[in-house]
Computed example of a mutant assay.
Amino acid sequence: MERVTLRIPKQQIEEVERMVETGEYPNRSEAIRSAVRDMLAEQDTAKERPSEKRKRRTWAKV
C-alpha cells in the first residue's frame, strides 16, 4: 500500500472521526479508503452506461 498525504477541511475530518467513534469504520484510513473505492465504483458504473450523461463532480471550495 502507498502512503498519501492530503489536506482535508477540519469539519470533514470531524465527520470521519464520528464515523470511527460510532464503529462504522475501524479508523480514519479505512473510512477514506472506502470513500475512494465508492468514487471509483461510481466512475466505473458511469462508464458502463455511456448513453447517460455523466455528472461532473463539484468540489467544495476550501
Score class of each variant (00 low, 15 high):
residue 9 P to A: 07
residue 43 Q to W: 14
residue 21 E to W: 01
residue 2 E to P: 03
residue 1 M to L: 08
residue 42 E to D: 10
residue 26 P to N: 09
residue 2 E to F: 04
residue 18 R to M: 10
residue 58 T to I: 15
residue 60 A to F: 11
residue 45 T to D: 15
residue 14 E to N: 09
residue 36 V to L: 15
residue 35 A to S: 14
residue 17 E to V: 03
residue 9 P to E: 02
residue 11 Q to M: 01
residue 45 T to W: 14
residue 59 W to M: 06
residue 7 R to Q: 04
residue 61 K to P: 00
residue 59 W to T: 02
residue 45 T to Y: 14
residue 51 S to F: 07
residue 14 E to G: 05
residue 25 Y to K: 05
residue 1 M to E: 09
residue 47 K to I: 13
residue 41 A to T: 11
residue 22 T to H: 12
residue 56 R to Q: 11
residue 54 R to Y: 07
residue 48 E to K: 13
residue 21 E to L: 04
residue 8 I to Q: 03
residue 57 R to Y: 14
residue 56 R to N: 00
residue 37 R to V: 03
residue 42 E to V: 03
residue 10 K to P: 06
residue 27 N to E: 07
residue 24 E to D: 10
residue 23 G to I: 01
residue 12 Q to P: 00
residue 52 E to A: 07
residue 4 V to P: 01
residue 26 P to D: 08
residue 2 E to C: 08
residue 27 N to Q: 12
residue 38 D to L: 15
residue 19 M to D: 10
residue 21 E to M: 02
residue 2 E to G: 07
residue 37 R to N: 02
residue 44 D to N: 12
residue 20 V to A: 00
residue 26 P to S: 08
residue 20 V to I: 00
residue 53 K to W: 11
residue 20 V to C: 01
residue 48 E to R: 09
residue 32 I to D: 02
residue 4 V to T: 06
residue 40 L to A: 13
residue 61 K to Y: 01
residue 28 R to Y: 03
residue 47 K to D: 10
residue 1 M to S: 12
residue 11 Q to S: 05
residue 42 E to Y: 10
residue 23 G to Y: 04
residue 42 E to R: 13
residue 12 Q to D: 07
residue 56 R to V: 05
residue 12 Q to Y: 02
residue 6 L to C: 06
residue 10 K to C: 02
residue 2 E to S: 13
residue 37 R to K: 10
residue 22 T to L: 10
residue 42 E to C: 06
residue 57 R to Q: 14
residue 21 E to P: 00
residue 52 E to L: 15
residue 7 R to F: 03
residue 31 A to R: 03
residue 44 D to C: 03
residue 47 K to R: 15
residue 56 R to K: 12
residue 26 P to I: 04
residue 56 R to L: 06
residue 18 R to I: 05
residue 24 E to V: 10
residue 50 P to N: 11
residue 10 K to N: 06
residue 54 R to G: 10
residue 46 A to R: 11
residue 61 K to S: 07
residue 10 K to V: 05
residue 5 T to E: 06
residue 27 N to R: 00
residue 8 I to A: 02
residue 42 E to P: 05
residue 11 Q to N: 04
residue 35 A to H: 11
residue 23 G to C: 12
residue 7 R to P: 00
residue 42 E to M: 13
residue 15 E to N: 08
residue 15 E to P: 04
residue 46 A to E: 01
residue 38 D to Y: 12
residue 45 T to F: 12
residue 29 S to E: 09
residue 37 R to H: 02
residue 44 D to Q: 11
residue 37 R to Y: 10
residue 54 R to S: 09
residue 9 P to H: 03
residue 62 V to C: 08
residue 18 R to K: 11
residue 55 K to Q: 08
residue 17 E to F: 02
residue 56 R to Y: 05
residue 2 E to Y: 01
residue 62 V to H: 07
residue 15 E to G: 01
residue 30 E to N: 08
residue 25 Y to F: 12
residue 16 V to I: 15
residue 41 A to V: 12
residue 12 Q to E: 13
residue 62 V to R: 06
residue 12 Q to S: 05
residue 15 E to T: 04
residue 55 K to Y: 07
residue 29 S to H: 11
residue 7 R to T: 07
residue 43 Q to T: 12
residue 20 V to Y: 00
